[in-house]
C-alpha cells in the first residue's frame, strides 16, 4: 500500500495488526513519535492524519493508506517552527519525551485560530507530561499563538 508521511510517499506492506506507531518507528525509522503507554492515555504517539491529531498507537497502519500523515519530523524539517522554538525558549520541555506529541496536539489547535488559555489546556489534556507541570508548555503555546497572530 501507499502511505504519505511528511509529504513523502512510502510503499509498505504492513500486516493487519501493525499499529501506525510501530510502522512509523520500526519500519520507517521515524522515531520522533514516542510510545509512553499502551492504551491511548499518554498522547506521546500523537500524529496528524489529514491534519487532525490522532493516537498512532490506536490506529492500524493499513487504515491510513492513502491519507496524509504528519509526524514531528515533518512539522518543520531542518529548522524549528515558531511553536517548537517557543517551547525551547520558554522552558516548555525538559526530558523531551512528551514533546513531539505535545507539539502535534498544539499544532492542530493553532491551525484553528488564536486559542484562549482554556482552549490550550483542553487541547493538551490528552497529552501527559511528568516533568514540567504543564505551566511552561501552556505559556509556550500562548506565546507561539500570539506571534502567529501578530505575523
Amino acid at each position: 500500500m501507499k502511505l504519505r508521511v511528511n509529504a513523502l510517499e512510502y510503499l509498505v506492506d504492513p500486516p493487519a495488526e501493525r499499529l501506525l506507531v510501530d510502522l512509523l518507528r520500526e519500519d520507517l525509522h521515524l522515531t520522533g513519535t514516542k510510545r509512553g503507554c499502551d492504551d491511548g492515555s499518554c498522547g506521546a504517539c500523537t500524529v496528524l492524519v489529514d491534519g487532525a491529531p490522532q493516537h498512532s498507537c490506536l490506529t492500524l497502519a493499513r487504515l491510513v493508506s492513502g491519507r496524509d500523515v504528519t509526524t514531528i519530523e515533518g512539522v518543520s524539517p531542518g529548522r524549528l517552527s515558531r511553536l517548537q522554538r517557543s517551547l525551547v525558549e520558554t522552558g516548555g520541555l525538559q526530558c523531551g519525551f512528551c514533546t513531539p506529541g505535545m507539539i502535534i496536539a498544539a499544532l492542530a489547535l493553532l491551525q484553528r485560530g488564536t486559542p484562549s488559555r482554556d482552549d490550550i489546556l483542553e487541547a493538551i489534556s490528552g497529552n501527559f507530561c511528568r516533568c514540567t507541570g504543564y505551566a511552561k508548555i501552556v505559556q509556550a503555546i500562548e506565546r507561539a499563538a500570539q506571534e502567529e497572530g501578530g505575523r
Binding site: 518507528r25 525509522h29 521515524l30 522515531t31 520522533g32 513519535t33 514516542k34 510510545r35 509526524t71 514531528i72 519530523e73 512539522v75 518543520s76 524549528l80 517548537q84 522554538r85 517551547l87 525551547v88 525558549e89 522552558g91 520541555l93 525538559q94 526530558c95 523531551g96 519525551f97 514533546t99 513531539p100 507539539i103
Partner: peptide, 23 residues
C-alpha cells in the same frame, strides 16, 4: 541567565535519540 536547554532543539524536532529509538 535563562538559557534554554542546549538539547532543546533536538528534543523539539523529534531528533533526540532515546534508548528505544536505537537499532
Amino acid at each position: 541567565s535563562r538559557v534554554p536547554l542546549v538539547d532543546g532543539p533536538l528534543k523539539a524536532s523529534g531528533s533526540a535519540l532515546y534508548t528505544a529509538d536505537l537499532t
